[in-house]
Amino acid sequence: MSAQDHVIHAHRDDVGARMGMWLFLFTELLLFGGLFFIYSVYRFINQEQFHLAAKELNPIIGTFNTIILLTSSLTMALAIAAIQKKNKGLSIFFQLITILLAFGFLINKFFEWRVKLHHDLFPGSEVLLNKPKGEILFYGLYYVMTGLHGLHVIIGIVLIAFMTRLTIKNIINQDSYVKLEAAGLYWHLVDIIWIFLFPLFYLIT
């Protein structure tokens, strides 16, 4: 502790905070990793039926949502770059755009699922239960994995909105923005999970 250090920085450890966030992300990796294990085994055993079932999914909505999520990752990274460059207004702007894009993703998801429900393709429905076992498994995994991912998007929106509030109140500022970085790390992980979900569910026909 040298005398030049700011007093408010005395007990701050940004590197440690980011490390903590990364460790949390590894547990998320384990959570989704387990689901990817289940997916890979069932797909290996039921290859034909997985291909057939995936034909019901709309690759255009999937591609559109991929573009939305990738763009929201960009705006999140830009929000951190802006606060580093002491541009508070721009950072808040990019955070709001990120939240907006996240809502766009969820709205797309809502319409996608609504079409499935109209076709009576939901877990436990009569239409689905009369299909072969592999297709039932595909839809089970589809709803659980994209559903859990969607839940993460919702959590991400709450998290980023909270960070926006802290930025407005100057608690997150050009000198202390590790909270925003942590929220960013979470958001990028949600993006990475979708990067794998997208081809594995929408593009296997």
């Binding site: 920085h9 940004d14 770059a81 000198d175």
Partner: peptide, 22 residues
């Protein structure tokens, strides 16, 4: 006075690289 030396230890990227990656 020394706000450029922050605890994060990052050398901030410019905006450009993020657009390139996107």
């Amino acid at each position: 006075s020394n706000s450029d030396i922050h605890n994060s230890g990052h050398q901030p990227h410019g905006y450009g690289i993020y657009f390139l990656v996107w």
